[in-house]
Amino acid sequence: MKVSSNRIKDIRRYYKQQLADNYDEKEIDSFLYLLFEEYAGLSKAQILLNAEATISESELLKIHFAVKALMNNKPIQYIIGSSEFYGLQFKVNPDVLIPRPETEELVELVIKENAEKEKQSIIDIGTGSGCIAITLKKYLPDHEVCGIDFSANALNMAEGNAKSNNQGIQFRKMDFLNLRNWDKLDTYDVIVSNPPYVRKSEMGQMHNNVLDYEPAMALFVEDENPLLFYGAIAKFAKDHLNRSGTVYCEINQYLGKETSALFFDAGFQSVDIVKDMNGNDRILKAQY
């Protein structure tokens, strides 16, 4: 390391220079605040008010290795092992996707439309870190929520996140695309999912920090059948969605019309596409 001293101001100056070729200044400041908090226990206010203060050699070393990982495009959430989602903290690692703002919009819609309803049953298909299921249980406490996923490692992460957020949720390991497994599931008032939906032909639009570190199985689908999971969800709903229930899915922004048509063809009478904060087709809402 070539940091001139262990003073906060010198550390920040040095690592800003190191990261300048990879990130913009605002991102770098955000990263460094997170790293100081994670490894030195210092808040943003403490950092700004005590620029002359020093941190220990071991704390500096942890920050140093974290910056090296950032220079290799590793997501900050995987470096510190956690991510904030809808005001809650979730542990994350490369076995699960990093929660995104668009998914917060999906969760917010489900909460808004179901907060005043009596006790309901909710299933989160492809739960990953559990961020959707756990947040829904947090803000819809009277509702029963369960989550399923194909990945045992993801489910271990989800169970840990449910415990740390004090939410009681049933998680089950299951290959949702295997129709024979559906008999093991109940009927539900709400089906929610953020399934894989990025076509492999769209990989060129994605950043290296996603391509190199996030689980491809949770992101990508074949171009020949990009609506694979949506077709399965629509078919599952035929026998497992209560007649007054609703399906909510995050979708590929480029396939809104196609996804909507799929659900209409499956017998849904009302299918709406909701745009995200950037004006892109992002959420499908379907009812019989």
Rank of each mutant, 00 (worst) to 15 (best):
I76W: 02
I111K: 00
F176M: 05
G256P: 01
A261P: 00
E222L: 12
T259S: 08
A237N: 03
E59V: 08
S260A: 15
A218R: 00
A115T: 12
I111M: 06
M203C: 09
A69P: 06
D239Q: 13
Y23K: 08
D10H: 04
G147V: 06
A66H: 00
A133Q: 03
N209L: 04
T259C: 10
K200Q: 14
Y230T: 07
S270L: 15
F236W: 07
S121K: 15
Q46T: 08
T127A: 05
L49R: 09
N93R: 10
A237K: 01
T54G: 01
Y197I: 07
A20H: 12
K138H: 12
R13I: 09
K112N: 11
Q205W: 08
D149I: 04
Y78R: 05
N252Q: 07
P75Q: 07
D276W: 14
K74V: 13
G267P: 00
P196Y: 07
Q120V: 12
L35E: 02
G128F: 03
D21F: 15
G126Y: 02
L219G: 08
Y39I: 06
V3N: 04
A218P: 00
A53Y: 00
S129N: 02
M203L: 06
N181A: 06
E38D: 08
Q77Y: 10
A218V: 02
V110P: 00
L97G: 05
E116N: 15
N166G: 09
L284V: 06
K68P: 09
Q18G: 13
G87E: 11
M217H: 09
K91M: 14
Q77G: 05
S270N: 15
D183M: 14
F31L: 11
L19S: 03
Y188P: 02
I80P: 03
I63Y: 02
Y14S: 07
A45L: 11
A162G: 06
K9Y: 02
F229K: 05
I98S: 01
N208A: 14
E108L: 11
S151Q: 02
E224N: 13
L227A: 09
D239T: 15
L211N: 02
L140A: 09
D272G: 12
K235A: 10
S193Q: 04
G147K: 04
G231C: 12
I148S: 00
R199N: 11
G128I: 00
F31C: 09
M1D: 14
D95L: 00
K26Q: 13
K9N: 03
R13S: 11
E104Y: 11
